[in-house]
Protein backbone atom coordinates (compact mmCIF):
# COMPACT_ATOMS: atom_id res chain seq x y z
CA UNK A 1 0.00 0.00 0.00
CA UNK A 2 2.70 2.44 0.98
CA UNK A 3 4.21 2.35 -2.45
CA UNK A 4 0.88 3.18 -3.88
CA UNK A 5 0.30 6.24 -1.72
CA UNK A 6 3.67 7.59 -2.61
CA UNK A 7 3.18 6.99 -6.30
CA UNK A 8 3.23 9.90 -8.75
CA UNK A 9 -0.19 8.86 -10.03
CA UNK A 10 -1.72 9.22 -6.57
CA UNK A 11 -0.52 12.78 -6.10
CA UNK A 12 -1.50 13.64 -9.62
CA UNK A 13 -4.97 12.29 -9.01
CA UNK A 14 -5.24 14.24 -5.76
CA UNK A 15 -4.31 17.53 -7.44
CA UNK A 16 -6.83 16.84 -10.20
CA UNK A 17 -9.50 16.08 -7.62
CA UNK A 18 -8.78 19.23 -5.64
CA UNK A 19 -9.01 21.72 -8.48
CA UNK A 20 -12.74 21.84 -9.29
CA UNK A 21 -13.72 21.73 -5.62
CA UNK A 22 -11.23 24.46 -4.82
CA UNK A 23 -12.48 26.77 -7.56
CA UNK A 24 -16.08 26.29 -6.47
CA UNK A 25 -15.16 26.71 -2.82
CA UNK A 26 -13.50 30.03 -3.61
CA UNK A 27 -16.77 31.14 -5.17
CA UNK A 28 -18.59 30.03 -2.02
CA UNK A 29 -16.04 31.82 0.16
CA UNK A 30 -16.59 35.12 -1.61
CA UNK A 31 -20.36 34.76 -1.38
CA UNK A 32 -20.22 33.94 2.30
CA UNK A 33 -18.10 37.02 2.84
CA UNK A 34 -20.83 39.31 1.48
CA UNK A 35 -23.46 37.52 3.53
CA UNK A 36 -24.99 35.31 0.86
CA UNK A 37 -25.20 31.60 1.35
CA UNK A 38 -24.38 30.14 -2.02
CA UNK A 39 -25.54 26.55 -2.29
CA UNK A 40 -25.95 26.81 -6.05
CA UNK A 41 -22.26 26.01 -6.60
CA UNK A 42 -23.18 22.53 -7.81
CA UNK A 43 -25.54 23.84 -10.46
CA UNK A 44 -23.20 26.56 -11.63
CA UNK A 45 -20.40 24.03 -12.04
CA UNK A 46 -22.64 21.73 -14.00
CA UNK A 47 -23.64 24.52 -16.36
CA UNK A 48 -19.96 25.39 -16.75
CA UNK A 49 -19.02 21.78 -17.49
CA UNK A 50 -21.71 21.45 -20.13
CA UNK A 51 -20.99 24.80 -21.73
CA UNK A 52 -17.29 23.94 -21.92
CA UNK A 53 -17.98 20.78 -23.87
CA UNK A 54 -20.65 22.35 -26.05
CA UNK A 55 -18.47 25.37 -26.75
CA UNK A 56 -15.44 23.30 -27.55
CA UNK A 57 -17.49 20.96 -29.76
CA UNK A 58 -19.28 23.63 -31.77
CA UNK A 59 -16.41 26.08 -32.17
CA UNK A 60 -13.84 23.35 -32.58
CA UNK A 61 -11.47 25.24 -30.35
CA UNK A 62 -10.48 25.06 -26.75
CA UNK A 63 -10.79 28.82 -26.43
CA UNK A 64 -14.43 28.52 -27.42
CA UNK A 65 -14.96 25.99 -24.69
CA UNK A 66 -13.27 28.10 -22.03
CA UNK A 67 -15.18 31.18 -23.07
CA UNK A 68 -18.53 29.40 -23.14
CA UNK A 69 -17.94 27.79 -19.74
CA UNK A 70 -17.19 31.10 -18.07
CA UNK A 71 -19.91 33.06 -19.86
CA UNK A 72 -22.66 30.48 -19.36
CA UNK A 73 -21.91 29.91 -15.73
CA UNK A 74 -21.66 33.64 -15.03
CA UNK A 75 -24.99 34.24 -16.73
CA UNK A 76 -26.50 31.41 -14.73
CA UNK A 77 -25.17 32.90 -11.49
CA UNK A 78 -26.89 36.11 -12.61
CA UNK A 79 -30.15 34.40 -11.66
CA UNK A 80 -28.84 33.97 -8.14
CA UNK A 81 -27.58 37.54 -8.06
CA UNK A 82 -30.92 38.84 -9.29
CA UNK A 83 -33.06 36.74 -7.00
CA UNK A 84 -30.94 36.84 -3.91
CA UNK A 85 -29.00 40.11 -3.99
CA UNK A 86 -31.51 42.37 -5.73
CA UNK A 87 -34.93 40.92 -4.92
CA UNK A 88 -33.76 39.57 -1.55
CA UNK A 89 -35.42 36.18 -2.05
CA UNK A 90 -34.48 33.28 0.21
CA UNK A 91 -30.99 32.28 -0.94
CA UNK A 92 -31.35 28.66 0.13
CA UNK A 93 -34.58 28.06 -1.78
CA UNK A 94 -33.21 29.87 -4.82
CA UNK A 95 -30.04 27.80 -4.54
CA UNK A 96 -31.93 24.52 -4.39
CA UNK A 97 -34.06 25.40 -7.40
CA UNK A 98 -31.04 26.60 -9.36
CA UNK A 99 -29.25 23.30 -8.74
CA UNK A 100 -32.26 21.38 -10.01
CA UNK A 101 -32.68 23.76 -12.92
CA UNK A 102 -29.05 23.27 -13.91
CA UNK A 103 -29.42 19.49 -13.85
CA UNK A 104 -32.59 19.63 -15.94
CA UNK A 105 -31.32 22.23 -18.36
CA UNK A 106 -28.01 20.52 -19.06
CA UNK A 107 -29.61 17.15 -19.65
CA UNK A 108 -32.25 18.74 -21.89
CA UNK A 109 -29.59 20.53 -23.91
CA UNK A 110 -27.45 17.40 -24.00
CA UNK A 111 -30.31 15.63 -25.74
CA UNK A 112 -31.49 18.43 -27.96
CA UNK A 113 -28.19 20.12 -28.88
CA UNK A 114 -25.74 17.24 -28.80
CA UNK A 115 -28.29 14.54 -29.57
CA UNK A 116 -27.26 12.04 -26.91
CA UNK A 117 -28.41 11.10 -23.48
CA UNK A 118 -26.11 10.07 -20.68
CA UNK A 119 -22.63 10.97 -21.82
CA UNK A 120 -21.23 13.00 -24.69
CA UNK A 121 -17.67 12.66 -25.74
CA UNK A 122 -15.87 13.62 -28.89
CA UNK A 123 -12.34 12.45 -29.34
CA UNK A 124 -11.61 15.33 -31.68
CA UNK A 125 -12.54 17.82 -29.01
CA UNK A 126 -9.68 19.78 -27.52
CA UNK A 127 -9.11 19.55 -23.78
CA UNK A 128 -6.78 21.47 -21.52
CA UNK A 129 -3.21 20.42 -22.06
CA UNK A 130 -0.68 19.78 -19.38
CA UNK A 131 2.24 22.14 -19.04
CA UNK A 132 5.75 21.11 -18.22
CA UNK A 133 7.37 23.34 -15.67
CA UNK A 134 11.08 22.62 -15.68
CA UNK A 135 12.47 22.02 -12.23
CA UNK A 136 9.13 21.34 -10.54
CA UNK A 137 8.30 18.58 -12.97
CA UNK A 138 11.63 16.91 -12.37
CA UNK A 139 11.03 16.40 -8.65
CA UNK A 140 10.75 12.78 -7.60
CA UNK A 141 7.30 11.33 -6.90
CA UNK A 142 5.43 14.66 -6.76
CA UNK A 143 6.98 16.00 -9.95
CA UNK A 144 4.04 15.14 -12.15
CA UNK A 145 1.53 16.35 -9.60
CA UNK A 146 3.17 19.73 -9.16
CA UNK A 147 4.98 20.40 -12.40
CA UNK A 148 2.83 18.92 -15.14
CA UNK A 149 -0.68 20.16 -14.60
CA UNK A 150 -2.90 22.12 -16.92
CA UNK A 151 -2.90 25.91 -16.58
CA UNK A 152 -6.21 25.93 -14.71
CA UNK A 153 -4.69 24.02 -11.81
CA UNK A 154 -2.03 26.66 -11.36
CA UNK A 155 -4.60 29.39 -11.82
CA UNK A 156 -6.72 27.96 -9.04
CA UNK A 157 -3.87 28.24 -6.54
CA UNK A 158 -2.98 31.71 -7.72
CA UNK A 159 -6.61 32.63 -7.12
CA UNK A 160 -6.44 31.37 -3.55
CA UNK A 161 -3.56 33.76 -2.90
CA UNK A 162 -5.20 36.58 -4.85
CA UNK A 163 -8.49 36.28 -2.98
CA UNK A 164 -6.74 36.05 0.37
CA UNK A 165 -4.78 39.23 -0.41
CA UNK A 166 -7.86 40.93 -1.84
CA UNK A 167 -9.86 40.33 1.32
CA UNK A 168 -7.12 41.21 3.77
CA UNK A 169 -5.35 44.15 2.22
CA UNK A 170 -7.47 46.03 -0.31
CA UNK A 171 -10.18 48.63 0.31
CA UNK A 172 -12.69 46.54 -1.63
CA UNK A 173 -11.81 43.50 0.43
CA UNK A 174 -12.43 45.45 3.61
CA UNK A 175 -15.81 46.54 2.28
CA UNK A 176 -16.69 42.97 1.40
CA UNK A 177 -15.77 41.83 4.91
CA UNK A 178 -17.83 44.60 6.43
CA UNK A 179 -20.89 43.84 4.31
CA UNK A 180 -20.71 40.17 5.21
CA UNK A 181 -20.38 40.84 8.90
CA UNK A 182 -22.93 43.61 9.41
CA UNK A 183 -24.57 44.79 6.23
CA UNK A 184 -26.58 47.61 7.76
CA UNK A 185 -23.47 49.10 9.34
CA UNK A 186 -21.78 49.02 5.96
CA UNK A 187 -24.79 50.63 4.33
CA UNK A 188 -24.88 53.50 6.83
CA UNK A 189 -21.28 54.19 5.88
CA UNK A 190 -22.31 54.35 2.25
CA UNK A 191 -21.22 50.94 1.00
CA UNK A 192 -23.52 49.65 -1.71
CA UNK A 193 -24.15 46.15 -0.36
CA UNK A 194 -26.36 45.16 -3.28
CA UNK A 195 -23.72 46.07 -5.83
CA UNK A 196 -21.02 44.15 -3.97
CA UNK A 197 -23.28 41.14 -3.67
CA UNK A 198 -24.01 41.16 -7.38
CA UNK A 199 -20.34 41.53 -8.29
CA UNK A 200 -19.28 38.76 -5.95
CA UNK A 201 -22.03 36.41 -7.11
CA UNK A 202 -21.10 36.93 -10.74
CA UNK A 203 -17.41 36.45 -9.99
CA UNK A 204 -18.39 33.27 -8.17
CA UNK A 205 -20.26 32.20 -11.29
CA UNK A 206 -17.12 32.67 -13.36
CA UNK A 207 -15.11 30.63 -10.84
CA UNK A 208 -17.69 27.86 -10.96
CA UNK A 209 -17.51 28.01 -14.75
CA UNK A 210 -13.78 27.31 -14.47
CA UNK A 211 -14.51 24.52 -12.01
CA UNK A 212 -16.90 22.96 -14.52
CA UNK A 213 -14.36 23.43 -17.27
CA UNK A 214 -11.79 21.52 -15.26
CA UNK A 215 -14.29 18.70 -14.76
CA UNK A 216 -15.27 18.28 -18.39
CA UNK A 217 -12.14 19.33 -20.26
CA UNK A 218 -9.49 19.11 -17.56
CA UNK A 219 -8.28 15.57 -17.84
CA UNK A 220 -10.98 13.86 -19.88
CA UNK A 221 -12.97 15.49 -22.64
CA UNK A 222 -16.54 14.54 -21.97
CA UNK A 223 -19.76 15.65 -20.40
CA UNK A 224 -22.10 13.33 -18.59
CA UNK A 225 -25.36 14.09 -16.83
CA UNK A 226 -24.85 15.23 -13.24
CA UNK A 227 -21.12 14.83 -13.64
CA UNK A 228 -20.50 17.24 -10.76
CA UNK A 229 -21.76 14.44 -8.49
CA UNK A 230 -21.98 16.49 -5.31
CA UNK A 231 -18.66 18.31 -5.70
CA UNK A 232 -20.48 21.62 -5.34
CA UNK A 233 -21.83 20.44 -2.02
CA UNK A 234 -18.41 19.29 -0.93
CA UNK A 235 -17.24 22.81 -1.77
CA UNK A 236 -20.03 24.19 0.41
CA UNK A 237 -18.77 21.96 3.22
CA UNK A 238 -15.22 23.20 2.62
CA UNK A 239 -16.40 26.81 2.98
CA UNK A 240 -18.02 25.92 6.30
CA UNK A 241 -15.00 24.04 7.58
CA UNK A 242 -12.67 26.85 6.59
CA UNK A 243 -15.11 29.42 7.95
CA UNK A 244 -14.89 31.34 4.66
CA UNK A 245 -11.21 32.15 5.06
CA UNK A 246 -9.37 31.37 1.81
CA UNK A 247 -6.42 29.43 3.18
CA UNK A 248 -8.31 27.15 5.59
CA UNK A 249 -10.94 26.60 2.89
CA UNK A 250 -8.17 25.57 0.50
CA UNK A 251 -6.81 23.22 3.14
CA UNK A 252 -10.21 21.56 3.46
CA UNK A 253 -10.31 21.16 -0.32
CA UNK A 254 -6.91 19.46 -0.23
CA UNK A 255 -8.29 16.99 2.29
CA UNK A 256 -11.26 16.21 0.06
CA UNK A 257 -9.07 15.93 -3.03
CA UNK A 258 -6.88 13.41 -1.27
CA UNK A 259 -9.98 11.45 -0.23
CA UNK A 260 -11.04 11.41 -3.86
CA UNK A 261 -7.66 10.11 -4.99
CA UNK A 262 -7.67 7.59 -2.19
CA UNK A 263 -11.02 6.27 -3.35
CA UNK A 264 -9.71 5.84 -6.88
CA UNK A 265 -6.60 4.20 -5.57
CA UNK A 266 -8.52 1.69 -3.47
CA UNK A 267 -10.63 0.93 -6.51
CA UNK A 268 -7.44 0.17 -8.36
CA UNK A 269 -6.63 -2.23 -5.56
CA UNK A 270 -9.80 -4.16 -6.30
CA UNK A 271 -12.41 -2.66 -4.01
CA UNK A 272 -15.81 -2.20 -5.69
CA UNK A 273 -16.22 1.24 -7.19
CA UNK A 274 -19.68 1.78 -5.66
CA UNK A 275 -17.99 1.77 -2.27
CA UNK A 276 -14.85 3.70 -3.15
CA UNK A 277 -16.85 6.39 -4.95
CA UNK A 278 -18.39 7.21 -1.59
CA UNK A 279 -15.01 8.04 -0.05
CA UNK A 280 -15.07 11.83 -0.64
CA UNK A 281 -18.58 12.17 0.77
CA UNK A 282 -17.83 10.06 3.80
CA UNK A 283 -14.60 11.95 4.47
CA UNK A 284 -16.46 15.26 4.11
CA UNK A 285 -19.16 14.14 6.51
CA UNK A 286 -16.59 12.92 9.02
CA UNK A 287 -14.72 16.21 8.75
CA UNK A 288 -17.95 18.11 9.41
CA UNK A 289 -18.73 15.96 12.42
CA UNK A 290 -15.24 16.31 13.88
CA UNK A 291 -15.22 20.05 13.32
CA UNK A 292 -18.71 20.33 14.76
CA UNK A 293 -17.79 18.38 17.87
CA UNK A 294 -14.86 20.72 18.29
CA UNK A 295 -17.22 23.64 17.74
CA UNK A 296 -15.41 24.86 14.69
CA UNK A 297 -18.45 25.41 12.51
CA UNK A 298 -20.40 28.64 12.78
CA UNK A 299 -23.19 28.25 15.29
CA UNK A 300 -25.59 29.63 12.73
CA UNK A 301 -28.47 27.36 11.83
CA UNK A 302 -28.82 26.73 8.15
CA UNK A 303 -32.50 26.45 7.63
CA UNK A 304 -34.79 27.90 5.02
Amino acid sequence: MTSFFLSPAFFDQAVLGITPILLAALAGTLSERVGLFNIALEGQMLVGAFAAVAGSHFTGSLAGGVLMAVVASTLFSGLLAFGSAILRGNDIVIGISLNLLAAGLTSFLLRSLLGVSGTFSDSAMAGLTRLHIPGLADLPVIGRALGEQNPLVYLSWLLVAAIAIFLAYTPWGLRVRGIGEQADAAVTLGANAVRYRIAVTLAGGALCGLAGLQLSLGSLTLFSENMTAGRGWIAVAAVMLGRARPLPVAAACVLFGIADALGLKLQGEGLPNQITDSAPYVVTLIALVVAGLRQKIDGRKLSV
Binding site: L174, R175, R177, G178, E181, Q182, A185, L189, A191
Partner: peptide
Protein backbone atom coordinates in the same frame (compact mmCIF):
# COMPACT_ATOMS: atom_id res chain seq x y z
CA UNK B 1 -18.11 45.42 12.61
CA UNK B 2 -17.19 43.42 15.67
CA UNK B 3 -14.62 41.13 14.09
CA UNK B 4 -12.73 44.04 12.57
CA UNK B 5 -10.30 46.39 14.27
CA UNK B 6 -11.01 49.89 15.49
CA UNK B 7 -9.14 51.53 12.63
CA UNK B 8 -10.86 49.37 10.03
CA UNK B 9 -14.23 50.43 11.42
CA UNK B 10 -13.26 54.08 11.31
CA UNK B 11 -11.70 54.32 7.85
CA UNK B 12 -14.26 52.01 6.21
CA UNK B 13 -14.94 53.32 2.71
Amino acid sequence: FESLTVWENIVYR
